[in-house]
Amino acid sequence: MDFKTIFSWEAMIPIILLVSLIAAMLCTLLFKNLVKSAISLSALSAVLSIIMFLMGQTLAAVFELSVCAGLVTVLFISTVSMTRDRDEEEIAAITKARRKKYYALPVVLLVITILLFIVWPTVNNNFLIAGDTDTTKSVGDILWYDREIDIVGQIIIILAGAFGVVLLFKERETK
């Protein structure tokens, strides 16, 4: 295999995507500012939706991009804005303790990666058995016609979400 094949764009794009996924995760978990964390989380969702799109799951990618990168970020930012910011002195005291706690995270992730590289060759890949590909049905058919009792559960969950939103914005109405 020559140099151009190994470092071609087609070979590099998956690696770039997965590296940016992990980078977005680290930004999400390590940023001190919660608003920055929420924005990094939306970047994580955006990268995940690109991966979904490249793997042929276009409808799920659209949902991921619009709901997780959009709505969830708005929810997080509104939650952060509804809660009080700390004083500068308080922040300085917390930052030092926080740094100590999160120094271990990249190390833990590195150790897990090395362990996976060692263990992976012994893992049996036979669990990935391809089933029959059903091309006659669309996603809509499966979502609305193939499901039975779980759709009732999902309706209840959506109602619970609606009550959650009412709880979230209750104080604004009373003020």
Partner: peptide, 23 residues
């Protein structure tokens, strides 16, 4: 096709969980 239906259901549940938890 089947996995997209599962992922869409999961995204819906995910958003509801986050909304209620944020409340």
């Amino acid at each position: 096709v089947k996995i997209q239906a599962v992922i869409i259901s999961m995204i819906v549940v995910e958003v509801v969980v986050i909304t209620v938890a944020a409340g």
